[in-house]
Design a protein around this nucleic acid. Structure first.
Lengths: 245, 245
DNA sequence: GCAAAAGTGTTCTCAGTACACCCATGA
DNA sequence: TCATGGGTGTACTGAGAACACTTTTGC
């Protein structure tokens, strides 16, 4: 198989995860670190999205899937191509130039940006290369290239999307409590939700299925666990033409 | 100004227009026509979206704007980048290959697809090159490349978008009737809407402003004309966090 | 006066919203 | 027994949906 990479086109992956313990929506970022030849000066030390050039034989989706797999080992995750970024000056900050000269990339690179929703528990940071770390979306480190903008646009898209499609469950463990879902919506949207109304609304959905299980190992009343059934959701889904302008 | 074009990256423009007379949502397509060297055989005769390679110094948005302007002369239109298409085989039908060999394009081209909403009345087809024509979205001609797929995805995006944002007015003349708006929604969404409910709903919006004018030159009761105020809309707009899954 | 489309009101139903207390459990 | 978070019910309000006839105009 030929692995000729296209110097002008890349994919970048915004990887969202959710930590149910800290109730924090996080992003998986990798460290961009470069020392001077002498080794006594740090030229670049910041964070970027994981990404890479596409190969000539690959579809864009396959490229993104490959890049995510190389970082996390995961393959069956929610993935959305949300925007292409192609400003001719998008990689031209001082540190970017230093970095690119070292890596021998091309300055004019259009990147097709994807975001992924993963279950934090599925990612083993010990196994990831590039010193990858989770950062709360509200407390991002210094970011290289135009990745701050890419992240913000991914986040905006996610906010809109999670209101209209049940993608939120991609970020939760298979078994979750109603309050987990509420906490996650509150984290993503940065809003407060009335627990009684939210609970009633969610429990009434046929695709939110109560399990014969409760939380274990909590030092309080253990909560009822639920699962999300994609099958049921898709069977009962019907288009809604409500004009809301 | 350097005009070096990037052989791997293009933009394609899905141009939507609406004909209030025939109540038809249309697409502006250009003819792709090629005869054999001898001139006695038509090698390619079908339709495609307008599009072109990006120039090295250009942003993606600027490329799309340029391409639209070259076809229609229009510059201030609603524009949305909605998806990148990059399947390695996307330009490899028999006719595409004939065409590309003639035009000396690159087979592996990733295209950044945009859609535009224009007022049909603003486009003078006599002035357009490439034999451009309007086609109802429901009756598209044979399309080259992967442009059928691009169009379908643009249309899907438009359907969703027009429910949530007042972009529909980009397709209507500055002065329109309530029934024009209803007809347009019905065309785009392929649904029927109750006129009384729709009318009440729309008239109650503060940004739908009744004019001191009625239709002229119609052989029936002339309808009240309205305009859309983007200013008022933006002032009163507030985010709605209704979770609708 | 007639054809054609514009314009108008009421009732019902359902979902969203606001709001405060008791309950079950583990420590 | 107490601290902690889980879980529950009711009344109000507003928007969507269903539904059929009268009015205005140009010809």
């Amino acid at each position: 198989m030929e692995l000729k990479k296209n110097p002008n086109i890349s994919v970048d992956c915004v990887v969202f995860g959710y930590d149910t313990t800290t109730k924090s929506l996080n992003l998986l970022l990798i460290n961009r670190y470069l020392e001077s030849a002498s080794g006594n000066e740090v030229l670049v030390d910041d964070y970027v999205l994981t990404g890479y050039h596409i190969y000539e034989h690959e579809t864009l989706d396959d490229s993104a899937t490959r890049v995510l797999k190389e970082l996390t080992g995961l393959t069956n995750t929610y993935k959305k191509q949300f925007k292409a970024f192609g400003d001719p000056d998008r990689l031209k900050n001082e540190k970017d130039i230093t970095w690119i000269n070292n890596e021998k990339f091309n300055f004019r690179t259009v990147t097709i940006a994807y975001y992924f929703l993963v279950k934090t528990e599925d990612v083993d940071l010990e196994k990831t290369k590039h010193n990858a770390k989770w950062f709360p979306v509200a407390e991002l480190p210094t970011l290289g290239f135009d990745h701050k903008q890419i992240i913000l646009e991914a986040y905006e898209d996610l906010k809109i999307k999670c209101l209209a499609e049940p993608i939120i469950f991609e970020l939760l463990p298979d078994k979750f409590t109603i309050n987990d879902v509420q906490d996650l919506y509150e984290s993503i949207l940065d809003i407060e939700i009335d627990n009684r109304n939210f609970r009633r609304k969610l429990i009434n959905k046929k695709y939110i299925i109560p399990l014969d299980e409760k939380q274990v190992g909590v030092s309080k009343k253990p909560a009822q666990l639920y699962m999300f059934s994609k099958d049921v959701y898709e069977k009962m889904y019907q288009k809604n033409y409500l004009i809301n302008i």
